Each structure stands twice: as C-alpha cells, then as structure tokens.
Simulated scan of single mutants.
Amino acid sequence: MPPRRGWVTRRGSVEDCATQRNLSAAGRDEARRIGERFRAQGIAAARVYASQWCRCLDTARLLDLGEITPFAGLNSFFRDGGAKPCRRPKCVR
C-alpha cells in the first residue's frame, strides 16, 4: 500500500484511524452484504479504488472484490476543511 499523505482536518488525521469516525458494526455488515450482492450478480472481482480514510479502506476490504488501491484523489472534496466543496476537476485528479 502506498504511503498516506499527512492530511489533518477537523475529522482527524488520515494516518491515524483512532482520530477518525470509523465504520460501525452496521456499516461493516452493510459493506459485506454489498460485496455479496456484487458476487450474486456475477461480479466476483473488480478494481477497487478507495479514499485513504480508514472507513473507506475498511469498506473496500469488506466488499472482498479484490486488491484495493488507495487513491488520495478520493480523500475529500473539501479543500481546506471548510464548508465549501471543491467541484473543479483539479480537485479529483
């Protein structure tokens, strides 16, 4: 897994799961069920890209569809932790 960027926001640090809002038991169960539904539809493997936030990586793992690629471009659409999302293409590159 590539190293994570050292992002820190009011939600916590992308490098420290203890500072983040993590998946609940219900969220983990839901991710597993979604993976099962993919497999029931004939999708047993896929390229999986996930934000570097722990809850996103956990969701991707629990889908159990294949190797996960952490992608910083999915980390956040909020440039400075403020309330305005960045909607320009350069924010997701």
Results as ranks from 00 to 15, higher is better:
C54H: 05
L63I: 04
Q52F: 06
V14Y: 02
P2Q: 14
R32S: 12
Q20S: 12
E67I: 01
A46I: 06
G42Q: 10
Q41M: 15
R79W: 00
I68H: 05
I34W: 00
N75P: 00
E30D: 14
I43S: 12
R5C: 05
P89M: 07
A50I: 05
E30T: 12
V8I: 09
R87Y: 01
F78V: 01
G81F: 03
L23C: 14
E30K: 13
R10I: 01
R87Q: 05
F78W: 07
I34A: 15
C54A: 15
N22Y: 01
E67H: 09
K90C: 07
F71R: 07
P85G: 13
D64A: 15
N22Q: 13
R87H: 02
C86V: 01
A25N: 07
Q20P: 04
D80F: 04
D16H: 11
R28V: 00
L23D: 08
P3N: 13
T59G: 06
A83Y: 00
P85W: 00
T59A: 08
A25M: 07
C54G: 07
P89Q: 10
Q20H: 10
G12V: 04
R32M: 13
S24K: 06
A83N: 08
R93T: 03
E67S: 12
N75Q: 09
G42S: 13
Q52K: 00
W7P: 00
P89T: 03
P89Y: 06
R79D: 10
V92W: 14
I34Y: 00
A50R: 04
L74W: 00
A40C: 11
R87D: 03
R88D: 11
F38N: 12
C54K: 03
A83R: 11
R4D: 12
R33Y: 04
G73C: 10
S51R: 03
V8K: 12
G82N: 11
G73P: 02
R21I: 03
A45E: 15
G82C: 09
T69C: 09
L65W: 03
N22H: 09
C86T: 01
L62E: 08
V14N: 02
F71E: 14
R32Y: 05
A31W: 02
G35A: 10
L74D: 00
W53D: 06
A83V: 03
A31L: 07
P89S: 11
I68Y: 03
L62G: 05
T69P: 02
R11D: 14
A18G: 14
T59H: 03
C54L: 08
L65D: 10
G6L: 08
P3I: 02
R87N: 07
F77V: 08
R55S: 09
A40Y: 08
D64C: 06
T9I: 05
E67R: 14
W7T: 13
F38Y: 15
V48A: 14
R10A: 15
V8F: 06
P70T: 06
